[in-house]
Design a protein around this nucleic acid. Structure first.
Lengths: 190, 190
DNA sequence: TGAAATCGGTGATGTACATCACACCATCTT
DNA sequence: AAGATGGTGTGATGTACATCACCGATTTCA
């Protein structure tokens, strides 16, 4: 489906924008296509864009000193991703974003977001709402971490994203759940 | 210190507001004082306000089916708290907020926040920035959960809030760290 | 003021998980 | 075609934590 239409429907869920206004908003995005494995943000980068996923699957992850990977987010279609800390505070990136599959993405620069937010109150409202949603989701995940065992969280993840099981390798699912791939494997047959 | 001045300094960290504009903004807040132990939000409540802490310490927490407590946030002076999910989406509260100590708080209703956000672009920018900061902090805490052991997280918490050690009982610190109070006690002497 | 609740420490035991080690299979590569 | 590489399963062992049980000290309150 058309990237423009996908973004339009996504924003229409939250705010009202006339076609003309949306046309103007959309003109500030850039369409990008990436290959599986391609890196979008690397630790240490200056981050100037946020990314709306149209097609495919990205991952946002942290690498610790032992190069162990911790996945913050699987970015599926209709989700936004970036290093939001680096993006807002103009620090260097502390996380990585890359492509689990080939992907089609709409990216928006910091400057263009601020421009659109000052032009359209509804757009600023949209971004405030979206960030709040991310915040709440992150807190829910934290609670699930403290409250539930791994098996429970595994089933929670699969019921939220049924596609994930066949789409991404098990070691990445383990890196999202915060367990070793061996434990995940034992849970699955167990 | 004067609650008005504390809020003014807090907002001035992020945005520029003339004295007159701030005066107008401030008139939309209500000053509240609470006693230690007093409940501000209960699970199931309709949530219509967010809270800026001027003095004292609140906690935002979730109770699971076994009545085990998980603390999402210690709200210290200059922090905001509420059930942001319930507040934005008009769901019933899924968490609780109460007072660990006597507290002085400025509260802002949903309607007044939206009014101020539409009147002053800078104010909307402020709230977007604040929510982003909360989002980022929550992701960092999640990473710390996955990456670090309990002792490391305990020291992290105390270095971030040195006052906390004498201010709040250890069982609450354990409920923030996601370990049993026994384990925390053993860590502390061990 | 005396009883009750809250707060904090410590031992014994069980368990969910990490880690290391190895083995199998499917792709990819030259 | 042969070897390298990445994904996945499974056993053996160690460990960080929960849980239960009990203790004394302090605070709260009727």
């Amino acid at each position: 489906m058309d990237p423009k239409e996908i973004l339009q429907r996504h924003m229409a869920n939250m705010i009202d924008l006339s076609s003309d206004a949306f046309e103007h908003v959309f003109s500030h995005f850039e369409l990008q296509t990436y290959k599986k494995g391609q890196v979008i943000i690397q630790e240490g980068d200056v981050v100037d864009h946020e990314y709306f996923v149209v097609e495919g699957c990205l991952k946002a992850f942290y690498l610790n000193d032992d190069l162990k990977m911790f996945i913050l987010q699987f970015a599926m279609p209709n989700w936004w991703t970036s290093d939001f800390d680096a993006l807002y505070s103009h620090n260097k990136a502390s996380i990585h974003v890359d492509c689990i599959t080939d992907a089609v993405v709409l990216r928006l620069s910091n400057a263009n977001r601020e421009k659109l937010c000052s032009e359209f109150h509804a757009v600023e409202h949209f971004f405030r709402w979206r960030t709040n949603k991310g915040y709440v989701a992150s807190q829910k995940r934290l609670l699930s971490f403290m409250n539930n065992d791994t098996k429970h969280r595994y089933e929670e993840l699969l019921s939220m994203y049924p596609q994930l099981y066949n789409l991404v390798p098990k070691n990445l699912i383990a890196a999202y759940l915060g367990v070793s791939r061996e434990t995940l494997s034992r849970l699955h047959n167990g």
